[in-house]
């Protein structure tokens, strides 16, 4: 299941819903992304007041659904969930939730990491950080590309 929303989410309630009435699930893995209060800048770490997440409505949902479908092709999943927020978020706020459930832990853990790695390089979201020197668009990181490519090589 895919959700793109401005509102926060309740992790406990989402996990309960994801696993309800499915006794084949033996393991649930999850990743939660949070807003930090510091970000790397050209002059070391800079404090962040908040960030605004922009996205491409339509393509975002399409890409997230494709990524989720790919995870379901690669691993025997009983359930999966991606929630990604947009709009203005403050340090400590939740940004993203990825959760995968399977009969056994390996499929759940691996597919969860796959989903967040692919999401970071394929889903059309952009972060604008509020720094003391003004709004700063976050640059994509080579390490994220490398993490996503690792999964491509294994397929």
């Amino acid at each position: 299941m895919i959700r793109v929303q401005a509102e926060d989410f309740d992790i406990g309630a989402e996990f309960a819903r994801l696993t309800a009435d499915n006794r084949n699930i033996g393991g649930l893995a999850s990743f939660v992304g949070l807003v930090r209060d510091m970000a790397p800048s050209r002059t070391g770490n800079a404090p962040i007041g908040a960030m605004t997440l922009e996205h491409y409505p339509g393509m975002t949902e399409k890409k997230l659904a494709e990524i989720e479908a790919e995870a379901n092709r690669r691993w025997p999943l009983e359930a999966s969930l991606i929630i990604h927020r947009y709009g203005r978020l403050e340090p400590g706020d939740r940004i993203v939730l990825v959760a995968t459930a399977s009969a056994h832990r390996q499929a759940a853990l691996e597919s969860c990491q796959f989903l967040i790695d692919w999401l970071k390089t394929k889903a059309p979201f952009w972060k604008l950080e509020e720094t003391p020197s003004g709004g700063q668009w976050v640059d994509a990181r080579d390490s994220d590309d490398a993490a996503a490519k690792r999964w491509a090589a294994e397929s």
Binding site: Y56, M59, V96, P124, F125, W126, W137, D139
Partner: peptide
């Protein structure tokens, strides 16, 4: 057609 920088979500 959409033009945008490399994505930075997650």
């Amino acid at each position: 057609i959409a033009l945008f920088p490399p994505v930075t979500g997650g």
